[in-house]
């Protein structure tokens, strides 16, 4: 294991994380202002996970995402124009405006889909990995899921097959401590989802999900292991969502305290990353600001693109629909 990380990789991870943050903050505002229809589950606070994992993947590698999927999609290369257009339900979106937030997919980027069904991703990722092994194409599938999804039968069935056939898949559990509004202690008897790996014959490890460098190091090992034919890994990233389950302020439920949220915000993954970039003289404060400024402009351009795009024509109602 070599843990040396290049400046280019650090800058790449930071850029991906900032892109997620600014996209999500704006999308959340647009939703709560009634400009984006439906529910958005925002990824703010969890950016280090997507950023740290995705720098190890090419467009050829596949991911499955969750209902909280924008961060995965952006970090995998999703463009703001098509992302916003999809949230706005416009025909220029990744799914021609018919998928919305929870069903964005793009095969060219290896995005096998966000998924509105909790636990919907693991069987798809396992199937993709089965195909990769069968075809000997050297691709890796990465399955993002949450602590809540780890209770679903679909996760256990997928993990069982992945372990049995030593498939090239990495199960990345984003344990943010809540299944929707239910604290983890009220929905499962364990705290470390990684403990479940042993039951499926794969290693399970825990990493600080607020630290992109830590995620990068652990994910690199897991992806290498998968790609070299050694089989799956369960990588549990301890993280936290800064916004509500849905939207920014959500429904104002009292399932967690403000103090708890503020405590986690002290370990904001982007601030932690930027402290390191400055400390190690990888980027200057001006260069960091430039990343934010450029990304903000791209966000505004994405919104403009979406708002100016047409809705799908009613005549296309039954096109691209599988039932």
């Amino acid at each position: 294991m070599s843990t040396q990380i290049s400046n280019d990789t650090l800058i790449d991870m930071h850029r991906r994380m900032v892109r997620i943050r600014l996209f999500e903050e704006t999308a959340g505002k647009m939703m709560e202002d009634g400009k984006i229809p439906g529910a958005l589950h925002l990824y703010v606070g969890e950016e280090a996970v997507a950023g740290g994992v995705m720098v190890h993947l090419s467009d050829e590698d596949q991911i499955t995402s969750t209902h909280r999927g924008h961060g995965h999609l952006i970090a995998k290369g999703g463009e703001f124009d098509q992302m916003f257009a999809e949230l706005y339900g416009r025909s220029t979106g990744y799914c021609k405006g018919k998928g919305g937030s929870m069903h964005i997919s793009n095969m060219e980027l290896g995005i096998l889909g966000a998924n509105g069904i909790v636990g919907g991703g693991p069987p798809i990722a396992m199937g993709a990995a089965f195909g990769n092994k069968f075809l000997k194409n050297n691709k890796v599938a990465v399955c993002f899921f949450g602590d809540g999804a780890s209770n679903e039968g679909s996760f256990h069935e997928a993990a069982n097959m992945a372990g049995l056939y030593k498939l090239p898949v990495v199960f990345v559990c984003e344990n943010n401590g809540f299944g929707e509004y239910t604290p983890q202690a009220n929905h499962q008897a364990i705290v470390d989802v990684a403990d479940r790996a042993a039951g499926y014959g794969m290693p399970g490890v825990i990493v600080d999900g607020m630290d992109a460098v830590a995620v990068y190091e652990a994910a690199g090992e897991a992806v290498d292991r998968a790609r070299s034919g050694k089989g799956p890994t369960l990588l549990e990233c301890k993280t936290y969502r800064f916004f509500d389950h849905v939207g920014v302020r959500g429904m104002g439920l009292t399932y967690r305290s403000d103090e708890e949220v503020e405590r986690w915000k002290k370990r904001d993954p982007i601030l932690l990353m930027e402290e390191r970039l400055l400390e190690q003289k990888v980027l200057s404060a001006e260069q960091i600001k430039a990343v934010h400024d450029i990304t903000s402009e791209e966000v505004l351009a994405g919104i403009k693109f979406a708002e100016e795009s047409p809705f799908p024509d009613p005549s296309s109602l039954t096109e691209d629909v599988y039932a």
């Binding site: 364990i190 403990d195 290693p203 399970g204 490890v205 190091e217 890994t233």
Partner: peptide
């Protein structure tokens, strides 16, 4: 310590796993 026996050394080395049970 609930966190002991669970870090990345299970992946890069062959360290023992101690689940909390």
């Amino acid at each position: 310590n609930p966190a002991s026996g669970k870090d990345v050394r299970r992946l890069v080395a062959r360290a023992s796993v101690f689940d909390n049970q």
